[in-house]
C-alpha cells in the first residue's frame, strides 16, 4: 500500500494525493494513541516511524506542487501561499 503510494506520487493528481495523505496521517494518529497507552510496544513504534516518515515526505511533495498543508511548507515569494490555499470545509465538486 505505502510503496504504491510512494511510486505513483509523481503521477497522482491533487485529489488522489490529498486522499493518500489523509490515509497515511490517519494511520499515524491511530498508532500514536495506541503508543500513548503502550509506550514500550516496539512493533507499533516501527509502524509509527514508517508511516510518520511517509506522511512528512508526502506533505512536502504536495505542498511544493499544490498548496501548503501546514505553515512549515508555506514559504512564499510573490503571493502569500498559505492564504491562497483552499478552505478544507468547502469540499470538492465533481
Amino acid at each position: 500500500m505505502n510503496n504504491q503510494i510512494m511510486n505513483n506520487q509523481g503521477l497522482q493528481n491533487k485529489q488522489q494525493m490529498l486522499k493518500d495523505i489523509g490515509i497515511v496521517s490517519f494511520a499515524v494518529v491511530d498508532l500514536a494513541l495506541y503508543l500513548d497507552t503502550h509506550p514500550t510496544d516496539r512493533a507499533a513504534m516501527e509502524y509509527f516511524n514508517h508511516y510518520n516518515r511517509i506522511k512528512t515526505q508526502m506533505e512536502r511533495e504536495f505542498s511544493r506542487n499544490y498548496f501548503p498543508l501546514t505553515m512549515n511548507h508555506a514559504e512564499s515569494n510573490r503571493e502569500w501561499r498559505w492564504g491562497a490555499a483552499p478552505l478544507p470545509w468547502e469540499g470538492v465538486c465533481d
Binding site: A27, Y34, D41, A43, Y47
Partner: peptide, 11 residues
C-alpha cells in the same frame, strides 16, 4: 498489538 490492516484505505 496484533498488527494493522494491510489495506490502509479500508482502515
Amino acid at each position: 498489538f496484533n498488527g494493522i490492516y494491510d489495506d490502509l484505505e479500508k482502515a
